[in-house]
Nucleic acid binder design. Structure first.
Lengths: 148, 148
DNA sequence: ATATAGTCTATCTAAATAGTAGACTATTAT
DNA sequence: ATAATAGTCTACTATTTAGATAGACTATAT
């Protein structure tokens, strides 16, 4: 149950777009600020666009921006938009997988991991991009106070 | 955050050993009952042995068995024994990773995912193998009642 | 027109996953 | 002793996924 680079990049990307809400942000700027390989980011943004999380404008003064208000985008939507349902056990959502399972109906693991999935989903849903930015600003302020 | 085949096999293996607690169980029997490739299971059991979850006896009447009482083995131990810490974000446990992160101290994601990791850990720790078997037997009973 | 900036398709490499092969060692029963 | 049993160990292979890159193409503002 680990986030990989793509997940990491994805989170940083929407975070960056939320920080610059109102602007058209260039791929190259996100790439530089968030330390993401530009060409990789390019494709990542296309996925996010297809999922309706971000939108874009071509040409001069073009760039990417959030397709909805920060408060209407949560982390569950963001993560699932690029990697599908992240339930820890496949039978929680893949019907074909169940057929091969020796337990079928009386599988305890299905219950356990479906339960965990629900918990994680709830937590991720609770964090929208607006909240994320607020959390970040609060942390930044604390850091500032410490270094004085 | 998906469990892969190895995780799945691992869970089924300790489950099988818990079901047959008190016996020396042959690799081949676990493989057949749980539908796991024998040679793959062989190596999986060696990992579980190294981690102190299972123990074994060679020769005739030999086989594998749980190294501790079922109630003293929980799912967190089992899963982490074969794949290391399963924190969703690497910086929650890998110090080197943090150096590359553009946020360092004020990273909100670290907080979010460390929190989620704690939740999941708690849930997995709460389920020991004895509990697992009880849950399974209860489900089996329900299934039996339904089919009558 | 032309520069800008996103779009699309294809390719490449490295690592992880899943599975296989075969020789070796310890133990028990005869 | 020795043969059969059953785990141990090392190495290898195939497939898939992850991560990254290249370059031609399209839309738009000035």
């Amino acid at each position: 149950m680990k986030l990989n680079y793509e997940d990491d990049y994805t989170l940083k990307t929407v975070f960056d777009l939320a920080l610059h809400y109102g602007e058209n942000v260039h791929i190259a700027d996100i790439a530089r600020r968030q330390d993401i390989p530009g060409k990789f980011l390019e494709q990542l943004l296309l996925k996010l666009k297809k999922a309706g999380i971000v939108a874009s404008k071509k040409g001069p003064n073009g760039g990417y921006y959030l397709a909805k208000k920060p408060k209407d985008i949560n982390l569950k939507q963001v993560l699932e938009s690029i990697k599908g349902p992240f339930a820890p056990i496949e039978c929680a959502w893949n019907k074909d997988y169940i057929k091969k399972c020796p337990y079928f109906v009386d599988c305890v693991f299905k219950d356990i991991f479906t339960d965990i999935y629900k918990d994680v989903s709830k937590k991720l849903k609770a964090i929208d991009l607006n909240k994320l930015i607020m959390m970040h600003k609060k942390k930044q302020k604390l850091k500032g106070l410490k270094s004085e």
